[in-house]
């Protein structure tokens, strides 16, 4: 951890501390001296927590799991930016060489009504799970799996679907949006299924249900600031939001006709 160019930083941290969901919470200042520039941001917090433990103080709670930028568990607002100052980087992949000696770093949790703070920097992101459960899947009959190449997929659609599927559900889009809107997340999930043949049967009901759930969970609406796109560690573009708007509009306009047709064929 201390190999590499061996430079160390002396930092001041302003960290949001909150004992539980009901606690009003406050900022607490911590000294973080002798931090190696080779450390990741989370390793830096590990060091600070070790020192707090030694002093018998409560360590700072924060979410993390893979520490490889793939699970979407980590997420801190660092100096006003979700996942910190670098683009296309999760908090766990952010390194301390992105900071300068003597810096003061303000660390805050994701802020959104739909993501209540559980403790310190940990927020409850289960609203995302409930949006997925409302329609972010494809229904398949059981039985043998089809040959993978039985259904042709245009290369363009496959690539776009992969871009959308890169979403790790970290919630940085919500954290970055001045309206705490979840449009980029929902758009990515709606699009990655809606672009593929397997996603077509439920395409209209999926977008309708997921948008309704998104609204019901208390996320804000999109005013096209594009802060979500800037914060997304997977660089998912806002074009997917336009795509979802189009799908939603189509589904809303043709909703009745679909039902009539289903009745006809019975």
């Amino acid at each position: 951890m201390s190999s590499g160019n061996g430079k160390t930083l002396n930092l001041t941290l302003e960290v949001w501390r909150q004992k539980g969901p009901k606690d009003p919470g406050k900022f607490v200042t911590y000294d973080a001296h002798g931090i190696s520039t080779d450390m990741s941001f989370l390793e830096m917090l590990d060091v600070v927590n070790e020192r707090l433990n030694e002093k018998g103080e409560e360590p700072i709670a924060f979410d993390h799991d893979c520490r490889e930028g793939i699970c979407g568990m980590c997420g801190l607002v660092i100096n006003g930016r979700p996942h910190g100052p670098r683009g296309a980087t999760t908090t766990c992949q952010l390194h301390m060489r992105s900071f300068k000696d003597g810096d003061t770093i303000t660390i805050e949790p994701w802020r959104a009504t739909a993501f209540p703070v559980l403790r310190d920097l940990v927020v409850d992101r289960s609203a995302f799970d409930r949006i997925i459960a409302s329609g972010g899947f494809i229904s398949v009959s059981t039985g043998n799996a089809q040959d993978a190449n039985a259904i042709p997929v245009p290369k363009e659609a496959a690539e776009l679907a992969m871009d959308a599927a890169a979403c790790i559900g970290c919630g940085a889009c919500v954290a970055a949006c001045p309206n705490a809107s979840a449009m980029l997340f929902v758009a990515a999930k709606v699009s990655h299924l809606g672009l593929l043949p397997q996603g077509q049967p439920e395409r209209e009901s999926r977008v309708t249900k997921m948008v309704a759930k998104m609204d019901a969970e208390g996320f804000g609406s999109c005013t096209n600031h594009r802060e979500c796109e800037a914060a997304c560690p997977k660089e998912i573009p806002v074009q997917f939001i336009a795509r979802m708007n189009r799908d939603y509009l189509k589904a809303s306009i043709f909703a009745g006709r679909r039902e009539a047709r289903a009745g006809d064929s019975a």
Partner: peptide, 9 residues
């Protein structure tokens, strides 16, 4: 947020 930093808006 205590610190507001905008990038694309």
């Amino acid at each position: 947020y205590r610190v507001e930093t905008y990038k694309k808006s």
